[in-house]
Nucleic acid binder design. Structure first.
Lengths: 116, 116
DNA sequence: TTCATATTTCTATATTTCTAGAAATGACGA
DNA sequence: TCGTCATTTCTAGAAATATAGAAATATGAA
């Protein structure tokens, strides 16, 4: 039996993903995009719905995209922002629960992994 | 049927929780604390295991505690840091999956909810 | 080519965060 | 009280982040 933990996210990657989500504006963007569904939204629409200016939105989108949380594709002269890779969200949620959570629901035991 | 979403975390609170986790040092602290179990660790031990100095650790612990991710209790002249409120972790994981995730595991479809 | 639209890059500023050394505080023991 | 240990507060500098206006770029239309 081996650790099934590190396969999804290492600490560094997880931290930067959390950091990507750790902004109210970006979290708002995520929600709007997810609700918009797979058709996505243009930057313009996204700006209109969130009240964030284009250049700032570009900035945030880069961070979210780097974390693998959104995708962008060009369609004519506009950019379609597509919310979220479902598996990425599951990864990060799983990381939380398995890495950083004393999940007492399974065995009532902590895993005694030694670090350092 | 109403939204069952906002009951656990609002966007502001979720964002600051993610921000709290969005630091490699703090995520490391979380892991060490969780592994240490309910007995917790002193600041000194935590520093020894993570290589983070006391004053920096105090700083990080404040952020984690404000996010409800750790607890601290005094025991004699030392402070015991206890990792994680399990329900808080579940909350944030749930927030991720239900608020920010087009959960396609149920229907194979994204939710088409329109907002605004 | 020229114009209009959509987005990004450039630039700048304000703010926050990270980090830790030094000094201060709190708690215990003699 | 005095000394010691554990932690926090103070302080500060470096780095990162947030934010957006202006200019530049890319696309499409005429």
């Amino acid at each position: 039996m081996k650790h099934t933990i590190e396969k999804s996210l290492d600490v560094t990657r997880a931290a930067s993903t959390f950091a990507a989500l750790g902004s109210e504006q970006r979290l708002l963007v995520m929600r709007v995009l997810v609700r918009a569904g797979p058709e996505g939204l243009t930057i313009g629409e996204l700006g209109a719905r969130t009240g964030v200016t284009g250049s700032t939105l570009t900035h945030h989108m880069k961070i979210l995209a780097a974390a693998g949380l959104v995708d962008q594709k060009r369609e004519g002269r506009r950019i379609i922002c597509v919310g979220v890779d479902y598996t990425r969200m599951k990864d990060i949620a799983t990381f939380l629960l398995s890495e950083c959570c004393a999940d007492s629901s399974k065995t009532g035991q902590h895993n005694e992994a030694h670090n350092g």
